[in-house]
Amino acid sequence: MKYILIFLGLLLIACSKKEKKEFNPDNVLPKEIIDLSSVISSDLPTKLWGKAAIELMGFKGETEFRDVGMDSPAFIRNSYIEVFNHGGAHLDAPNHTDSLGKSIEDYELSKLLGPVKIFDASKYENNVPIPLDSLKDFELTKEDIFILYTNYKPPQNDIDLPSYPYLSVEACNYLTSIPVKAIATDAWSIESLSQFDKGINAGLTGNENLIPNHYNIFKNEIPLYEALENVGALLDKENIIFIGFPLKFKNGNGSPVRAVAFVY
């Protein structure tokens, strides 16, 4: 009886211990990594926006790289970089359009990655809003990162403004009502610049009238990515995880991102 009790005690101890699982990288590493980011070059802002948009908004069209260092006794180079934080693939912060909004370092990193649902809007006409009905059958959940693919092409001359299909106010409101985890686009903006310009000329004021999509997205505390690149490479893929982490600028109203898609 004594030995039976000892055996039962050892068996109970063994069963109570959790089996240690070996870490297997093959279970978490993606089959493919697709880069959705811009190469930050000196001419990126003008190349992406076009000269007309840069001048309309009164912005500087170049990123400045200033190298410092030494040649001897060893070759060393560092750089000071004056970067346009909305001039390529980037994440907007709420204080981009609201002086009291949160800044870029306030984002929870858990909100900046998740499964992807891509809406192909490349067949829609430029400067025409994408209607709400187009998204109704597009199954979305609170865990999804919604990417609007427009096949954006930057202006090809010095007088054209950026043109692309864009979300109607109703469609954007639908996304924020779910609410999706994040919203992204390969276009220059989630807004229409031509509509913004028309609104200015019509005397409209206020974010809710001039930039209604930004206004609604940030009101609902949803991260917004713009000007992603290479999104078309994702159209025939499944099981995609998006990751887009910003630089942690103090009081930053936006930041370039190294956005990637993990394909499983």
Rank of each mutant, 00 (worst) to 15 (best):
N127I: 03
D26Y: 11
I76S: 12
A259N: 07
E64A: 11
A14N: 08
Y174V: 13
D160C: 03
L11V: 13
L5N: 09
Y107M: 02
I34V: 15
W49P: 01
Y225W: 11
E238F: 04
A259K: 03
T205F: 14
Y80G: 01
K181P: 02
L10N: 03
A182K: 01
P256K: 01
L135Q: 03
V260H: 06
F242D: 00
I40C: 01
G232Y: 13
I243M: 09
L234H: 00
K20V: 15
T141Y: 04
L12Y: 10
E191T: 03
T63A: 13
Q156S: 15
F65E: 08
R77I: 13
N126Y: 07
N213E: 06
Y149M: 07
L91M: 09
L135G: 00
S110M: 02
T97K: 02
D236V: 00
K17V: 13
F23M: 04
M70H: 03
D35N: 15
P73T: 08
T150D: 01
P246R: 06
F242I: 15
F196V: 10
V169A: 09
N78R: 11
V68W: 14
L224F: 05
N127Q: 04
I54S: 12
M70Q: 14
N253G: 12
V169L: 14
K142L: 05
E55D: 15
N239P: 01
K198P: 00
D158V: 09
N230I: 11
T185L: 01
A74S: 12
G88V: 04
A53I: 00
I222H: 00
Y107W: 15
F249P: 01
P115V: 08
V257M: 08
I81D: 05
R258Y: 12
L56K: 13
E226M: 10
N207F: 03
G88Q: 04
A89T: 14
I40N: 04
P256C: 02
F84H: 09
P162H: 07
D236Y: 02
L10M: 13
L44E: 02
N27F: 09
G58Q: 05
S110Y: 05
D133V: 11
F119S: 08
A261H: 02
G244C: 06
E55N: 15
K21I: 13
L29V: 12
S168Q: 06
K136A: 05
P45T: 10
T185D: 01
L210G: 06
P223A: 07
Y107V: 00
P155L: 05
P131E: 05
G88E: 01
D43F: 04
A171T: 02
F262Y: 14
H86A: 11
G50W: 00
N251P: 04
I118E: 00
V257F: 03
G58H: 05
N207H: 04
S72I: 11
V231T: 12
V83K: 04
Y164T: 02
P154C: 11
I211A: 10
E238I: 02
W49H: 10
K142G: 15
W188C: 11
D35R: 15
E170C: 07
Q156R: 09
V128G: 00
L48A: 10
L113A: 07
E82Y: 12
L56F: 15
I190D: 01
G232R: 10
P45M: 06
S99A: 12
N207P: 02
D144Q: 08
T185P: 05
I222V: 14
